[in-house]
Design a binder for these strands. Structure first.
Lengths: 254, 254
DNA sequence: GTTTTCCGTTTCGTATTTTCGAACGCCTGC
DNA sequence: GCAGGCGTTCGAAAATACGAAACGGAAAAC
């Protein structure tokens, strides 16, 4: 419509818009639903859907279009790119089994944090913290752990491009407050959050020293009532830190 | 090139071609490398790369472009579409832990089989059997297990669209032989393969009755020397069948 | 130190395609 | 049997994806 960036392929963007809208509409949608909520006309969207179906990026079933499993093909490649996933995966699982909570592995990309692995223990909270989920780094302990391993310039850059939007009442939305928090995290070696992204839950997270690979962090998510018991929290922090150590050692002696 | 299918968006296809070529070139590539191996010119590919980077589908680092983690965002949605993944995941893991081998969960889509979960036990073979991997159904035990749960018409349709290409010397490439094999699988309740997809390894797999959800199957992959010991093979078959039972029960009482 | 080569990036004109709007045909419900 | 909603096809017009060529910086060659 308005802006036409010189270097971009509009049709590809349109295809992506259709895909995003399917996601927004709950994972599957009819052509009519998509035409209602999107700018392009029915016939245009239809052509994109046909193309995307040929590629396996959407699948049509009973008149509904949904996201295709082809996404996992490329997703699996991205996930395994530099070997962090394979090394960290067993430790993340161990954290989940030992604590019974939800354990996560996150990697930074383009200023966002992406969960590239999550495992639920037997008392774990049910959360939208799922494979591939992208979140702002300042909204959660694991993201702040990542930020704490960056230098200030890089943090500034991320704040500038992605902003500091609020998620709950407790989300840090102030630049100064964030930098102060990061300093504290660097001193303590642990990041935490209480209801900064999702009401009723909190996290403890630590960064992983990956050498020259992509920065990563791990965390445990738990309901706040369990997190507020001091003994329990200390125990979780201990688990996360030990796991990070093991991962770091294994990354070196790969 | 020549044919321009009436209902397809060429630019979207071009973007996908670029993505595929990055994958083919080992997961990352420079613009020059892509221009060398693809039809479109450097400037065209460049525009697509810029667009894809804006969307997070590729990431540029030190002059190399690689597949972006954004793929996992949509991949995670496709993976969880109808709940089979969540229910089956713990049982697949249990199979891997108990046997020490590689355990897999596959779903059929568009005539292909897609691994939507894999877990390695402590003696597991290292294989390209990874999250998101797409294979022809006739090439492996888990795929044949899936086929055995379809009626003949559907199998015919899949053979017609995807063919029966060979992978190793042992791959079934004959239509009659495949149908005979499927009949045997239906009788025995178990599919197996020995070096039909990868030399040196074999599988045992069984279909899962998912009710009205997408068809699924689980399998265990092991080196042939372990698979050829009759006691061991019987034990693996037992494990897979029990796991399938548990998953089926849990799918009903979800 | 100069030249050459290589690579990413930009520009620009044109031909190709995307896009829209309308019309078609099918099915469902009234 | 009629009306409304849906996916699909068609053709014309506007938008843009594409190729060719040139630019500029960095690295390599001499």
């Amino acid at each position: 419509m308005t802006r036409a960036k010189t270097n971009s392929v509009r049709a590809t963007q349109t295809s992506l818009t259709v895909l995003s809208e399917i996601k927004t509409l709950g994972g599957s949608a009819t052509l009519a639903e998509l035409a209602d909520s999107l700018e392009p006309t029915k016939s245009t969207i239809y052509k994109h859907l046909v193309t995307l179906e040929d590629e396996g990026l959407v699948v049509e079933q009973d008149g509904e279009y949904r996201i295709g499993l082809r996404w996992l093909e490329f997703g699996g490649i991205a996930q395994r790119y530099d070997g962090i996933y394979e090394v960290a995966k067993p430790e993340v699982r161990r954290m989940a089994v030992e604590t019974g909570e939800l354990a996560n592995l996150m990697i930074e990309e383009q200023g966002y944090g992406i969960y590239i692995h999550t495992t639920s223990g037997d008392q774990a909270v049910a959360l939208d913290t799922r494979l591939g989920k992208r979140i702002h780094l300042h909204k959660t302990a694991i993201g702040k752990a990542l930020l704490s391993s960056f230098d200030d310039n890089r943090v500034e850059e991320i704040i500038e491009t992605r902003g500091l939007p609020a998620e709950t009442e407790n989300t840090i939305t102030d630049r100064e407050a964030l930098f102060a928090e990061l300093e504290t995290i660097r001193e303590r070696g642990v990041a935490d959050d209480t209801e900064e992204r999702v009401d009723g839950t909190g996290c403890v997270g630590v960064p992983i020293d990956t050498g020259d690979r992509r920065e990563a962090a791990i965390s445990i998510t738990a309901p706040i009532n369990r997190l507020q018991s001091p003994g329990r929290k200390a125990q979780l922090i201990d688990t996360v830190q030990q796991a990070a150590n093991v991962i770091e050692v294994n990354l070196v002696h790969g």
